[in-house]
Design a protein around this nucleic acid. Structure first.
Lengths: 91, 91
DNA sequence: CACTTATATAAATCTCCTTTCATATGAAAG
DNA sequence: CTTTCATATGAAAGGAGATTTATATAAGTG
C-alpha cells in the first residue's frame, strides 16, 4: 500500500473527490466535471486514493465507477471541518 | 492563520507531538526528547501547529509549555488511526 | 557581568507533491 | 478496422514541505 490516509486528506481536490463520491459512485469524467479539473489530474488523485484503500473502482463498459470504500471517511472529514472552523475562530 | 489542520496532521512527527502533549502540557525539550528529534525541528513543528491554532503555549520562566488547544483533535487522531488500520487490512 | 539553559529563527538543502502535457490503452460504435 | 470515447500513465516543471546547521534571543545562575 502506497501513501497513507493523512496524505490523501492533505489536498483540497482529493477531499472534494471524497465528498463528490461519498453519496453515490461516479465515473472519472463526472468527478472531473464536478471539481472542474482535468481528467488527467482526476485520474492521478483517484489512483493515490485507490492505493491507500480509501476508494474502490468498478468497471462498466468503458467507464470506471469510483466510490468511497469506508463511509467513516466522510465522518472524519466532517469532524475535521468542524475542528478547522473552531480553530479559525480562535485567530 | 498559516497552514491548516490537514497539513498539520500530514506528518508523523507532528502527530506524535499531539499525542505527546495530548494528556498533559510539556516543554519543548521534553517533547524533543519524547520524540527523539532535534530541539530545532521540534520548535519548527510547534510553530506550525501554533499557527494553525492546534496547540497553545504558556511561559514559565525560561521554559515554554505547550498543550493541545482542543481535545477533539485527539479524537480525530484516534478515528484516523482506526480507519488507517481498517484500510490496511484490505490490502 | 559572564555563563548556561531553553527556545526560536533563518538559510540552505533535500525530498516529496501537485499539476500539466503528451501519449498509451482498451472498449464500443460505425 | 478505423474512429471515438473513457481512462490511465509517464515525464517534466514548479512549488511546498521536512530537516539540518548555525546563530540569535532571553531568562536564570553564580
Amino acid at each position: 500500500m502506497k501513501g497513507d490516509l493523512y496524505k490523501c486528506l492533505n489536498n483540497a481536490n482529493r477531499r472534494k473527490i471524497l465528498y463528490c463520491i461519498g453519496e453515490e459512485e461516479k465515473c472519472v469524467n463526472e468527478i472531473a466535471e464536478c471539481l472542474d479539473i482535468e481528467q488527467s489530474l482526476t485520474s492521478h488523485h483517484l489512483k493515490d486514493m485507490l492505493d491507500c484503500g480509501l476508494i474502490e473502482k468498478r468497471r462498466e463498459g468503458k467507464r470506471f465507477y469510483y466510490k468511497v470504500s469506508e463511509s467513516e471517511i466522510i465522518e472524519i472529514l466532517e469532524k475535521g471541518k468542524d475542528l478547522g472552523d473552531k480553530l479559525e475562530e480562535r485567530c
